[in-house]
């Protein structure tokens, strides 16, 4: 009540100006005839002629009506003030003809586009791959580093029973020309009795030639060749004894001396690295 009176006080003209509009809708009464007579809807015959279409068009704008017997009847703007640009440059030849269905050649057109785009993608993939490999390869070791990373050793320079030390990648490299007795001795050792079990055949490619990195596996001293209780190497720092296969036999070192990668390129030449 309060709200209604307030509304009535503040807005008296609302009610004063309101008017009742009669509903334009008529009740939808569907009369279903129970009679068996067929219902034939009334046909509105309407002839699309140029005259009738033109007559039905509003007079305020430029409209042009066309009709044809075998073709669509249409009403279109007749722009006399706007020139329509020539779009033939953007139309394909197959769609240029007005009397042919554009759908007929659509697969051909799409296939052509896909093929060209795919070809572009292939060329793009090739250039992207070249670009990436070129940039990544700049991170690879340079030629001067690679040239220093390998060392050639003339085997004839090393007499039998002698160990030679070379400098290789900043580390001492031992190359040992072993005698037959040494080979026999290290091969006969029971692998299970070793701290770091490796058979001699796993550590050499040719029995006569033993290649080792001359760094003690304990704390990195350089062992002395042909010394120690096992006739191989002896580390003077903490007393690790290695045999003639570079295996740890006594002392604090945990592992055998490391064997680098090497290969024999000829009878007289070995490349380490």
């Amino acid at each position: 009540m309060i709200a209604a009176s307030r509304l009535g006080v503040s807005l008296p003209h609302v009610s004063a100006t309101s008017q009742i509009v009669a509903s334009q809708l008529r009740p939808a009464v569907i009369s279903l005839s129970s009679a068996s007579k067929d219902v034939i809807p009334e046909r509105h015959e309407f002839w699309h002629t140029q005259q009738s279409l033109s007559a039905s068009a509003p007079k305020s704008c430029f409209l042009r009506a066309t009709s044809a017997v075998h073709g669509p009847s249409q009403v279109r703007y007749a722009h006399t003030d706007i020139t329509v640009p020539d779009f033939t440059e953007y139309r394909r030849e197959t769609t240029a003809a007005a009397n042919r269905s554009a759908e007929a050649g659509s697969v051909d057109r799409r296939a052509f586009t896909y093929m060209l785009v795919g070809g572009g993608a292939v060329a793009g993939a090739y250039s992207a791959k070249s670009l990436v490999t070129d940039f990544v390869s700049t991170m690879a070791a340079s030629a001067d580093v690679l040239a220093m990373a390998k060392i050639e050793i003339k085997l004839s320079d090393i007499p039998e029973g002698k160990n030679m030390t070379f400098k290789w990648r900043g580390k001492p490299l031992f190359v040992r020309h072993r005698t037959a007795e040494e080979i026999e001795e290290v091969a006969a050792v029971d692998v299970n009795s070793l701290r770091h079990p490796e058979h001699d055949s796993e550590r050499v490619k040719v029995p006569e030639w033993l290649v080792l990195i001359g760094v003690c596996t304990h704390l990195g001293c350089v062992p002395i060749a042909n010394a120690g209780e096992f006739g191989g190497y002896f580390c003077p720092c903490h007393g690790s004894h290695y045999d003639a296969s570079g295996r740890i036999r006594k002392g604090p070192a945990p592992l055998n001396l490391e064997v680098p990668e090497y290969e024999f390129t000829s009878d007289d030449l070995m490349i380490v690295g």
Partner: peptide, 18 residues
């Protein structure tokens, strides 16, 4: 061309031969 998967595969394979 119809499926993107086969289209992409064709491009990759094509790139190898190309």
């Amino acid at each position: 061309f119809r499926r993107t998967s086969s289209y992409a595969l064709a491009i990759v394979v094509g790139a190898v031969f190309f």
